[in-house]
Design a protein around this nucleic acid. Structure first.
Lengths: 254, 254
DNA sequence: CGAACTGTTGAATAAGGTCAAACCAGGTGG
DNA sequence: CCACCTGGTTTGACCTTATTCAACAGTTCG
């Protein structure tokens, strides 16, 4: 079941934006929910103070587009709450999702003048945003921030290359296994452990991430279920019953 | 016909390393062939001076491995001459090439302690190398360099994501068309224009970059040839006869 | 010349895609 | 409360694309 666009953060925002409208308000970095895992970790207390001054929180409703490829880069920021998909399109509508962004993840490129991907909210989103113009200046003045952004960029590059291996060389079965384990990993970074995996995206979005069709994804879910490796709690949650065997499948060692 | 491992750079290296052996010697940045297009562009004259002091030129023979995934990162550097492939492997030997590096391209990650890809020389290589330990320090002391590395990382990320779109969603025909146009593009950055495209890699390596098999790549070459879009001069060179139509195929608009 | 490669082409096969129908849960409204 | 609709999902039957397997052609090199 998909989350409804309820008040996303009662503490910060008693009068929440109704009807999925976007609203901005100043950010309080000291009490940030993703303080420990976002790029801001790299900053000193006074630097964080400065950041607070220019950061604003923005909300996006499920299905809302944050930005489009070719758009002038207007903002960068950090996901506080919710899940975002970033994707590329071909002229005839074929879609490839290039990343799912979870709380703590950085959104947008701090160096490129225009966006190169589309970004869309899969759930109600709380986003900590800096104007693009400010980022250039911040980077110059906060070497810690720049160093962290460089490290994050290389982590993202490595992940993208892992995904090239998946898209170019793995079978449908291996792709789904890899995907489920990636979600487990991503969740554990956010401190969420245990066998249950939340799937904020639907089958079509999983397909567009794995380079498959909806039907093939569904069939592979059924196959893993029949083999007893996972339990499909509902269409948006699975439990990993045999992580080791799933990992073997993911790496082609099964 | 593949280039033989002859003396790769007579001017700098009169007594070239015989039998494909690696040899190191100090670098002269002022006369560097890729000065204009490498990361070093960002540096001031005194900075370049400092860089000269610690950079060394190393040579690799065709087929030689520069580094392996999981290896501790020993070096980063810039390609001066030749072509390198970087790739990921699955346990059973399936290979996905994640990039071809040409003169001016940066090799290795300045932030990661271990390599995440394999790198192998496709032709004799001349490489301008800095010890990994020095890079950390250099970045701290040369903000221009760090800013440029951040920009390069994001360009690479964008390219990787374009390739995810190719691997996940394009047909064999579209993949080969995209690949040929990428080579044209890369060559034009190095100042090489005109319809002729050099292919330093063999069919197997093209296949491993495009997520296809050798046979499919060969068939698609034949098909583009029959359609009059390209001329296959020999197995390592093609001429683009109809760039516009090739671009339409590459983007799925044909 | 013949061996070893690399590349091309053809025929058979399989993995995943397409098309179509059934299923299922959650909401809506009588 | 229940019938009905709706969207996402699952499953089945069939088809297409690219892979696999195999034979053959060009080159290079000993």
């Amino acid at each position: 079941m998909k989350l409804v666009a309820a008040n996303p953060c009662p503490r910060h925002e008693p009068g929440a934006p109704p009807h999925g409208l976007t609203k901005a308000l100043p950010q309080d970095c000291a009490h940030c929910a993703v303080r420990e895992i976002a790029v801001c970790t790299a900053l000193s207390a006074p630097e964080l103070e400065r950041l607070s001054a220019i950061a604003v929180t923005r909300y996006f409703a499920t299905g809302e587009t944050l930005f489009r490829a070719e758009d002038a880069a207007a903002m960068v920021g950090t996901v506080i709450r919710g899940t975002i998909k970033t994707y590329k399109l071909l002229a005839d509508g074929r879609q490839q999702i290039v990343g799912f962004l979870f709380p703590g993840d950085f959104v947008g490129s701090p160096t490129q003048e225009t966006h190169h991907v589309f970004a869309e909210a899969l759930t109600p989103i709380e986003l900590c945003v800096f104007p693009f113009s400010a980022v250039q200046r911040l980077i110059r003045e906060m070497p810690n921030l720049e160093r962290r952004l460089l490290a994050v960029a290389h982590e993202d590059l490595d992940l993208a290359q892992d995904w090239m291996l998946l898209l170019g060389r793995k079978t449908a079965q291996e792709r789904l296994a890899t995907f489920l384990l990636l979600l487990v990993n991503k969740a554990s970074i956010r401190g969420i452990h245990g066998g249950a995996v939340e799937l904020p995206m639907n089958r079509g979005e999983i397909a567009d991430y794995l380079g498959l069709t909806i039907e093939t994804v569904s069939r592979q879910f059924s196959k893993l279920k029949r083999a007893g490796l996972i339990r499909v709690d509902d269409s948006h949650a699975v439990t990993i019953k045999q992580p080791d065997r799933l990992a073997e499948i993911a790496e082609g060692t099964a």
